[in-house]
Simulated assay, not measured.
Amino acid sequence: MNPLVHRTLVVQLRTDGTGRCPVLARLSHDAGDPFAVTAVFGHDGRVPARRRLDRGMPADGLNGPVGVGDVRPRPVATGTWRELRMDFRGDPQRAG
């Protein structure tokens, strides 16, 4: 079994007062930390933020709002599409 599983996605970043811009998000799961998923967000070759999530949050967030801390996933329906919107609060953990 592979101790590290990851997937890189293009996601849309939106901040208050701006439109959306594409950024890369790499989601990783490490068998050494079985209850967490790490999300690393990058843009233009930089890694501005890293967040650790409970491993069930992304899937649970498709069904309803979850989270009480700095990361709060929730579903959003936009026409025929279902989106997972993640609100990030507080300071991001800086990636090295």
Rank of each mutant, 00 (worst) to 15 (best):
P58G: 05
H6R: 15
L62N: 04
V47Q: 14
R46D: 07
F88G: 12
T38P: 02
R94D: 02
P92M: 12
D33M: 01
L84I: 09
A59E: 00
N2C: 08
H43V: 09
R82D: 09
M86S: 07
R94L: 08
R94M: 05
G19W: 11
R72S: 00
H6M: 10
A31C: 05
P58S: 00
V37G: 05
G42E: 15
V66Q: 05
E83F: 13
F41K: 11
L24V: 09
G67P: 04
L84C: 08
G69P: 01
Q93V: 15
L84H: 07
H43N: 01
P73A: 10
P3V: 14
R52A: 00
G64S: 08
G79H: 12
A36P: 02
R46C: 06
G17V: 06
G67F: 08
M1H: 08
A95K: 03
G19T: 11
L84K: 11
R20H: 02
D87K: 11
T38W: 04
V40Y: 03
G64W: 06
G45D: 08
L24M: 13
R46H: 05
G67N: 01
L4V: 14
A25D: 03
M1S: 14
F88I: 09
P75W: 15
R72I: 00
G45V: 01
G96F: 03
D91A: 15
R20G: 06
R89H: 07
A77E: 09
T38S: 01
H43Y: 11
